[in-house]
């Protein structure tokens, strides 16, 4: 039973449900896309799955990851990575240290850790960027660093929250290819929410409309 399952998930903001109960299986090695108009609660759904639901929301239903019910677990032990639309790189750390923050702690020793980070930077086409201040990166570079940081933590599932919406249209295609290439060979379930039909088409997996 490996994969990510949602069982009749509903989220309420001040007693009004945001969408009809959602049941869904996200298989491994594919990108499943949830599409829907802005404001329907797609990001809130992501928050719920990841364990980041803000105060003021109540949710019911359950999240099953690899056969384990994680609904009541704190975010940090769920092993569900998230890529946010604005990258959320930490401004006080260099690019390399942002990746070190993500890199799983079982990679031990200074040299081994530095090598792992260099490899990840190379894969992102950012070799030699370790000492850079994240604020000096372009939007596309920030997004690639954010994906690498997420993957270095070795998540068991990945959530993509409108990952391309803040980018210029001509960059979007490049980054889509980069993101999907990197996660397809990971053998983990990936769930993306977007309001852009082109994202769903590029992901090439099942598409589930939410609300509307």
């Amino acid at each position: 039973m490996r994969g990510l399952d949602l069982h009749s998930v509903t989220i309420r903001a001040a007693d009004a449900p945001l969408f009809a109960p959602l049941t869904l299986t996200v298989p491994r090695s594919t990108v499943t896309t949830i599409v829907g108009p802005s404001g329907i609660g797609k990001s809130t759904l992501m928050d719920f799955i990841g364990g980041h639901l803000a105060r003021g929301f109540t949710a019911s239903g359950s999240v099953i990851l690899d056969g384990r019910d994680v609904t009541r677990l704190p975010a940090e032990v769920r092993r569900i990575g998230i890529m946010f639309q604005d990258a959320a790189l930490f401004p006080h750390l260099s690019v390399g240290d942002n990746l070190a923050f993500g890199l799983a702690s079982h990679v031990r020793g200074r040299v081994a850790r530095r090598d792992a980070i260099e490899v990840a930077l190379k894969q992102a086409g950012l070799a030699g960027f370790a000492e850079r201040d994240p604020a000096t990166l372009s939007g596309g570079q920030r997004a690639r660093v954010a994906l690498m940081r997420t993957l270095l933590a070795e998540p068991c599932a990945l959530l993509l929250d409108e990952p391309f919406s803040k980018l210029d249209p001509d960059l979007r295609g490049d980054l889509r290819r980069f993101v999907f290439d990197h996660i397809r060979d990971r053998d983990i379930p990936v769930l993306m929410v977007t309001h852009d039909e082109a994202d769903a088409a590029a992901a090439g997996g099942p598409v589930i409309p939410l609300g509307g």
Binding site: A75, E76, V77, A88, R149, T150
Partner: peptide
């Protein structure tokens, strides 16, 4: 946002406060 990002990477709330929020 930074709390969510840190916790999604597997860090507990308290550790995210010390490693991410406090330095900023």
């Amino acid at each position: 946002r930074h709390l969510s990002a840190g916790r999604a990477l597997g860090y507990g709330r308290g550790v995210v406060w010390i490693k991410v929020i406090l330095p900023q």
